[in-house]
Amino acid sequence: MKKLTPLLPRHRKAAGFAPSGLIEMLLLAYIVAAVLNLALGNWIFATAMMAPLAGLFFWIQYTDRRGRCRIGDQVRLSMGSHAGKEGVIIGANETGTRFTVQMSSSDHPDPLDFSGYQLTKMKPVALPSS
């Protein structure tokens, strides 16, 4: 009988959520400390603790909105049978989770529907001036 061995080499570890979980726990502890300072009457210190968090919150909201796909954006498919192909978004549902993409290749003349996680937004390319 053969001995079962792991598929990954010994120097590699399986990907997991431990690093992000640790960051979330540290962030939660920081917020709890700020709220506790506010409850104890140290509002100046609590405000000084919460100001960087408020800035981080608004920065994340700004970058998230800027990175979302909209109608007319040039996208590349990153998953599925059409991976690597490019197209233009011509329609979206109300929640912005499903998109109708008109593929650039002549192989697919009809628009196709994709989930938002399958698309990668591409930067617009400036047209060459003549």
Rank of each mutant, 00 (worst) to 15 (best):
A39R: 11
D64K: 07
L27K: 12
L28R: 04
S20P: 01
F114L: 13
S20Y: 13
G21I: 04
P9I: 06
S106K: 15
M103C: 12
I71N: 02
P124W: 03
K123N: 10
T100F: 00
F17L: 10
E86Y: 01
A92R: 05
D110M: 15
G41C: 05
M122D: 06
L26R: 13
R76G: 00
Q61T: 07
W43N: 08
G87N: 00
L38D: 01
T5Y: 07
G84W: 05
T95Q: 13
A54N: 00
D107N: 15
A46K: 07
L36I: 06
A34I: 11
D113W: 06
Q74W: 00
T120N: 08
K3L: 05
L36V: 04
I89Q: 02
L77S: 03
A51Q: 07
T97S: 15
R12M: 14
G84T: 00
A33R: 11
T100A: 13
S78E: 13
L28K: 03
P19F: 04
G16Q: 07
Y62M: 07
S106Q: 14
I44L: 12
L7P: 06
S115K: 15
H108A: 15
S78H: 00
R76C: 00
Q74G: 01
S129N: 06
L56E: 03
L112M: 15
A29L: 12
S130P: 15
S130M: 08
G96K: 14
A126M: 10
T95G: 13
S81F: 01
P109D: 14
N37R: 07
A54V: 09
A29G: 11
M79W: 10
Q74R: 12
R12H: 09
G87T: 01
T120Q: 13
L4C: 05
K2P: 15
G21P: 01
P19N: 09
V101K: 05
R70A: 08
E94I: 01
V75N: 04
M25F: 12
L22D: 13
G41F: 08
H82M: 02
M103V: 13
T47W: 10
M50C: 06
A54L: 10
A46I: 02
Y117L: 12
L28T: 12
P52H: 02
S20I: 13
K3D: 03
H82I: 02
D64A: 14
P6V: 04
V88I: 09
I44C: 04
S115T: 15
R70P: 00
L8I: 07
L8R: 11
L127N: 01
S129H: 12
I31F: 07
G41V: 05
L127Y: 09
G96V: 03
R12E: 11
A92C: 08
Q61Y: 10
W43T: 10
F45A: 09
Q118D: 13
P6F: 06
I71E: 05
D110V: 12
S78R: 12
A39G: 11
S105Y: 09
A46T: 04
L53W: 02
G87P: 00
L7R: 12
R98I: 14
A54M: 05
G21D: 09
L56S: 04
L36A: 15
L77Y: 03
N42A: 10
I90D: 00
